[in-house]
Design a protein around this nucleic acid. Structure first.
Length: 490
RNA sequence: GCCCCCAUCGUCUAGAGGCCUAGGACACCACCCUUUCAAGGUGGCGACACGGGUUCGAAUCCCGUUGGGGGUGCCA
């Protein structure tokens, strides 16, 4: 008790956290989780959440990625109090810092190309640049990069809320480049300068940054005397099924993909927060305010987590089912445009009637159109596999369809009556209701799975339903007698 | 190679020396319910990587081994 570091103990100190993505690709789930953890910690402590775009590498940045990051964060509900700041607009600060280091002798110019360095250091015990230009007193000039002079003695210790105190021997750290030969600053410099300038108190970032943290610390010491150093928290990376770091290149990880698939942001948020952290008790589903209240950085796990799409989808199903029926209808709207019917043929009232039955059957909103498209298309959208299995080869399919045309023509058009008469119809053929339903379901909806049949019939209407049953009969007859599965023809 | 990090069911995790016969969730299997499919209910399968310590007592603390991961760019 009281042994653990607790942010709550820093009462009165306004915390400032930043999420600082690099716009070099689609915003992905790992970045989203890091952003979420930053946001939660900032909100829990009543601090400030800053968005900073780290676009110092002009070769790899694209403006549309910046928009993607912002819209994804808004979608997830991660609002920021300051920013977005752009490092590309703050170059003067980095230049000033570089000049200060140069004047103080903590940085020096180097004209070694990558090839030359590689050649000269091959076989060295300590990898990386060997400090060749340390004492050459080179002037700035074309093709020359600025390197930081790393102390040869001593060690640098990172104080990390999640990982304790990893320590690095300075001798194993090379004199790293802080300003490119084209005059632009690198991430490692800009990152420290901005954190100092913005008064960042907590750096929550992915574990892959841990090995560069001693460079951060050294730079911070040279620039700001190590005063008001932020505390670090390096969260574990997200991995794939082979336990490799999730990458934008090889995995489907873009948040936008999940959004388009019909994953709810609240489900994504909830799933993401559990990748490395768990609330007390045997709970997993929690509201945003519960997360804000209960999240503790010091309780974040230190081992990598596998991003399990199946569990995400399970959560999404739970969140969808928990929606008010009205909300479900409203949130399905954007997805209903992909249903394959003419916009004018969509009937909102018909959809609203069937919606509650659809709601409890889907795991994503993207599945909604396929559940109701039979209502808005002129003909039943017949699925070849279902037709073959349930009608062509289905037990007594022809008799069922013919009997349905007959019976449905005269009964009361409500679900209870249709249920009853279809059961009777099945009885006469010695079939359970489940079996008797299949040919009718395929004739009406085109598929052998979907919302409950009798409710679907009611919404479709008597006339259209009977027409579809007749169409199915014609189609069946046109195909001729089915080949016997036992005795192949020929 | 060198530096650093990590290690509980297949997966995400609970676990702060005795509450552990190691709990929950996803997935999977069986059964129940049932208007197809879902959902729901009940049950099942299933883990402390290994070896040494410390201790009356270790999943938990220490050391080592093994395994995995990250970094090793004039990327972030």
């Amino acid at each position: 008790m009281g042994q653990r570091w607790s942010p709550g103990s820093m009462r009165g100190v306004a915390v400032r956290l930043r999420f600082s993505p690099s716009p070099t690709g689609y915003f992905h789930v790992g970045g989203a989780r890091t952003a979420l953890y930053n946001w939660l910690e900032a909100r829990r402590q009543g601090g400030t959440f800053i968005l900073r775009i780290e676009d110092t590498d002009t070769e790899r940045n694209r403006p549309e990625w910046v928009d993607g990051i912002q819209s994804a964060m808004r979608w997830l509900g991660l609002d920021w109090d300051e920013g977005p700041y752009f490092q590309s607009l703050r170059a003067h600060l980095y230049e000033a810092a570089a000049a200060k280091l140069m004047v103080g002798g903590q940085a020096y110019w180097c004209d070694c190309t990558r090839e030359v360095v590689l050649e000269r250091t091959r076989g060295n015990a300590i990898p990386g640049y060997d400090g060749f230009c340390r004492d050459r007193d080179l002037e700035p000039g074309a093709g020359r990069a600025l390197r930081f002079r790393v102390p040869e003695e001593g060690s640098t210790t990172v104080v990390d809320i999640i990982r304790g105190r990893p320590t690095f021997e300075n001798a194993t750290i090379e004199d790293f480049v802080i300003v490119r030969s084209n005059g632009t600053s690198l991430f490692v410099l800009a990152n420290v300068v901005d954190d100092v300038d913005m008064g960042v108190t907590h750096v929550i970032r992915a574990e892959e940054h841990l090995p560069t943290t001693p460079k951060y610390l050294l730079l911070h010491g040279a620039l700001a005397g190590g005063v008001d150093l932020p505390v670090f928290a390096h969260v574990p990376v997200l991995v794939d099924e082979r336990r490799k770091k999730l990458s934008k290149r090889t995995h489907r990880v873009a948040l936008e993909d999940y959004r388009e698939q019909g994953v709810l942001p609240e489900a994504m948020r909830n799933y993401l927060v559990l990748l490395g952290w768990a609330p007390g008790g045997d709970r997993e589903v929690l509201t945003l305010s519960e997360m804000v209240e209960e999240f503790r950085l010091e309780d974040v796990n230190s081992s990598p987590a596998f991003f399990d799409e199946r569990k995400l989808l399970h959560f999404n199903g739970e969140y969808i089912r928990a929606l008010d029926p009205d909300a479900f209808v409203a949130r399905s709207a954007p997805f209903l445009e992909q249903g394959g019917w003419a916009p004018d043929d969509f009937d909102p009232a018909a959809f609203a009637t069937l919606a509650p039955l659809v709601q409890e059957r889907v795991k994503t909103l993207g599945e909604v159109p396929a559940m109701v498209d039979f209502l808005f298309q002129a003909e039943a959208p017949i699925e070849a596999k279902a037709w073959e299995k349930r009608v062509v080869r289905g037990a007594s399919a022809r008799e069922i369809l013919a009997a349905a045309v007959d019976v449905y023509g005269s009964v009361e058009w409500d679900a209870a009556t249709l249920h009853e008469s279809t059961a009777d119809l099945g009885d006469k053929l010695g079939l359970t209701l489940g079996k008797a339903q299949f040919p009718i379901r395929v004739a009406i909806t085109g598929r052998d799975v979907g919302p409950p049949l009798f409710e679907s019939l009611v919404v479709l209407g008597r006339e259209r339903s009977i027409r579809r049953l007749r169409t199915a009969l014609e189609r069946l007859d046109a195909a001729g007698p089915p080949a016997s599965p036992d005795r192949p023809a020929g």
